[in-house]
Structure formats: structure tokens, C-alpha cells
Amino acid sequence: MKTVIDAHNISKTFNPETIPIHAVRDVHLHLERGEFTALVGPSGSGKTTLLNMLGGLDKPDKGNILINGVDITSLTPNALIDFRLKNIGFVFQSFNLIPVFTARENVELIMQLQHRSKSEIEERVRTLFQEIGLEDKMDTRPAQLSGGQQQRVAVARALASKPQFILADEPTANLDSKSATKLLDIMAKLNEEENITFIFSTHDPRVIKRARRVITLVDGQVHSDTGPIDTSSDHFNTIEKE
């Protein structure tokens, strides 16, 4: 298996000079291609901070992160933006589609940034909309789509650049049960059939249930790193309560 993410001993402290908050402490993480991983833990456990660091949005105070062998902690800000564009797909909790663009234009945007050819963009967009099951909504603006449909477009956008992996921050948090299930089905299918690596930060038991690996963070540290877990178990409930 090919290593996609290799994080060594990373730590992040906010307000180090006033009231220090140790968001992430000495985390080691190793993710292989094709993993379907959930980062779980109570609020304030450091999931989003860890995800931001893995996505190159934030720099750790200590340690380094290798993505496909490239140490992203040593890249310049501009090089980091370029790296994110080519290697990392993002799915955000509140979809974050550009409201003035249609669904198609939102997905095309990433490929335009990559200077892909027109024909390549058209073909890729068609394929992606087929995969998310929204071929008939390509020319619809985000405001006219349901939350679930918007999040599926966001997944298509994240996939458009053919990234090494996709980081999803609470992707189902704003979705109803049916939309969340549909979204998870699509992501699971992409993972299984196209071997796309997904890492979610989530509280949602529906997501955790589908994950093949669950990393639990408590107080910025890896509490456990297991295979699929039973979300109705005492162990899970204890972590959630904490």
C-alpha cells in the first residue's frame, strides 16, 4: 500500500504566550492510499486543528507532515496553495459553494485553476456529476439545491482535481438523515471503486459506522486508533461524553 499521509510528532498550541491551549499534542499518524478514516472525539479534542494541519491550512508548531513524501511544513505559503490544489480535496461542513456559480461552474473552477483543457474539464465534470447522481442539476445554482445536493456538488468539486486524498470536516453535520446516507453512499462507492482516500472529522455515528478506521482524539492526543467501531458501545459513548 502506498503511504499518503505520514505525520510525525505534530503539536499545535494556540495563545502560547497568554493562556496556552494545546489543541494537538504529539500526534503520529500514518494513512495509506484507499483508507476511509474517521477522526472522532468530543468538541475541542483537536479534530479540526489536526485536519487543518493535514490539509496544509495550518502549520504545526512542532513535528512534520509528509504527504506523498513531500514535507508540507517546509513549503512556502504560495507553494502550499499550489500543493493543496494538486493534492488535497476539501469538503466543508457548510458546503461553501460559490453562490453566483452554477453547480457545474463550481466544479469547473478547480480545474480552471489547474489550467486543464476545455475538453478535459467537460469530460471530468460529466463523469463527476454522474458519480454524484446530479447530472440534471449541473446548471443549477447552489441556492436552488438542497443541502444534501450541495454537499454532493462539494464532493465533486473536491474530486475534480484528482487529489491524493479528501479531507472532510463534519460533512454530514448540516444534512438530514436521508441526505447524509446518500452522501456517505457516494463517498463509500468512490472509495471502494476508485480507491480514493477519505479522512473525515465527525461526531456523526452514521459516518463513524461506515468508516473502516476510526481515530479517536481526546485533549489533542490520539486516544485510540481502531478498525470499525460500534457507535452504540459504551466505549464510544464515554468518549462522546468526555
Binding site: 490539509g55 491550512l57 504560495n78 490544489l85 485553476l113
Partner: peptide, 16 residues
């Protein structure tokens, strides 16, 4: 502000 942050996050260079 939020949207701009998101655009930079997904790979849009600040210059663009």
C-alpha cells in the same frame, strides 16, 4: 471573508 478563505484553502492563489 469566509468564501475567500475557502477559495484560498482549495487552492486559489491569492494573486488570482
Amino acid at each position: 471573508k469566509y468564501e475567500m478563505g475557502m477559495l484560498v484553502a482549495i487552492g486559489m492563489k491569492k494573486f488570482k
